[in-house]
């Protein structure tokens, strides 16, 4: 949570007592790590050596995990820069200026995460075709992300944040913040980061590990942003303000809509590749459950139906574990090759 430290200075246009201002300041102070400097100072020689020594299935496992992050970071950076930043100016929110200031830090850090992952995967890992020229902003995600359905939660994010930016409605903002800050950053990114934090026991990738310490710290501030934003909306709903009615119900329903994709992400980098690095889908899903309880129940005080959460994850897990992932991947790649052909033949792209 935001620590209430007395600001050193005060202004007239900027409220330096506002918690969003303090989050902004924390971002200025802590979020300014430099990706290129990290590559220069730590280097990637060891990471490359380790990568080359890994078995094929171990490489696939790490690649799948990082692919989820690469696409996720790209999506959150894009939506933060556009839709979410705009939504922070909504009349239904307090302290718009400070919130907008914080969004600049959030956007900067999300872009840095994309920058790190893109360069790392390109320099350290093999030159797998990610169809980058087809533009991830138009839905050309890494094939494993799109083939497993993780991409659907990012689609959802785009739709919800766009609607929030358009309507400025508190319920729409609550749904967007729930998806973006709690489900994508607070659950998916956190469970993935937990796997990466366990990598040193299995594969010596010091640069990756070091960078993820920064990334996790950044994400922590972003989650705080979402939690505080939702608290503000919930308080107004509880105070009986008509425009805010439905906030809690929609926070909870957005969880139920997104939570199945926790199974996609967990499956994608564990059982789908035989889990040679022992990331363990069971502890991954349990970690997700712990995070859900911590954010939704303990921090926001929302009434969560845990059976509903379990049933939604279970149904999705049963569905995806029946898939022939190889053929789905081939299908996805074929589709991208067709798109590539259209682009080369003079299509819109």
């Amino acid at each position: 949570m935001v620590e209430s430290t007395k600001p050193s200075y005060s202004g007239q246009r900027v409220d330096t007592d506002d918690k969003w201002y303090q989050l902004f300041q924390k971002g200025v102070e802590l979020g300014t790590w430099n990706v290129e400097k990290l590559f220069d100072e730590i280097g990637f020689k060891q990471d490359k050596e380790t990568w080359e020594s890994l078995e094929d299935d171990e490489r696939a496992q790490i690649r799948y995990l990082l692919s989820g992050f690469l696409d996720g970071e790209t999506e959150v950076a894009g939506d933060a820069a556009t839709n979410l930043s705009r939504a922070m100016g909504a009349d239904c929110l307090e302290g718009n200026r400070q919130k907008e200031m914080f969004m600049t830090m959030l956007t900067l850090t999300e872009h840095k995460h994309t920058q790190f992952l893109d360069i790392y995967m390109n320099e350290v890992m093999d030159d797998r075709d990610n169809y980058a020229e087809l533009d991830p902003r138009k839905g050309t995600r890494v094939p494993i992300v799109q083939a497993t359905g993780l991409g659907e939660v990012f689609e959802h994010q785009g739709l919800l944040t766009a609607k929030a930016a358009q309507t400025d409605d508190p319920v729409d903002i609550a749904r967007a913040a729930t998806n973006y800050h709690l489900n994508v950053e607070g659950i998916l990114a956190r469970v993935g980061s937990t796997a990466i934090s366990r990598l040193p026991e299995r594969a010596n990738l010091p640069l990756l590990n070091y960078a993820f310490k920064f990334i996790s710290t950044d994400e922590g501030r972003h989650i705080t942003h979402g939690v505080e934003l939702l608290k503000e909306l919930l308080e107004k709903e509880q105070a009986g303000k008509p425009a805010y009615q439905g906030v809690e119900e929609n926070i909870v329903s957005t969880l139920y809509e997104d939570v199945p994709y926790m199974a996609d992400f967990a499956y994608m980098y564990t059982d789908a590749v035989g889990d040679p690095l022992d990331f363990d889908i069971d502890s991954t899903l349990m970690r997700g459950g712990n995070l859900i309880d911590g954010m939704y129940n303990e921090t926001l005080g929302c009434d969560i139906d845990y059976m509903q959460v379990m049933d939604n994850v279970s149904d999705r897990y049963n569905e995806i574990s029946e898939w022939d992932l190889e053929s789905r991947l081939e299908e996805q790649e074929r589709h991208y090759q067709q798109k590539r052909g259209v682009a080369m033949d003079g299509g819109d792209d």
């Binding site: 889908i281 069971d282 502890s283 899903l285 349990m286 459950g289 712990n290 859900i292 309880d293 911590g294 129940n297 303990e298 845990y306 059976m307 379990m310 049933d311 994850v313 279970s314 897990y317 049963n318």
Partner: peptide, 18 residues
């Protein structure tokens, strides 16, 4: 989920038996 109690065992096995 709140970690008041810890489950040791397969989460994926329990999921369909919520």
């Amino acid at each position: 989920f709140s970690e008041d109690l810890e489950l040791d065992g397969s989460t994926t096995t329990i999921l369909p038996y919520s």
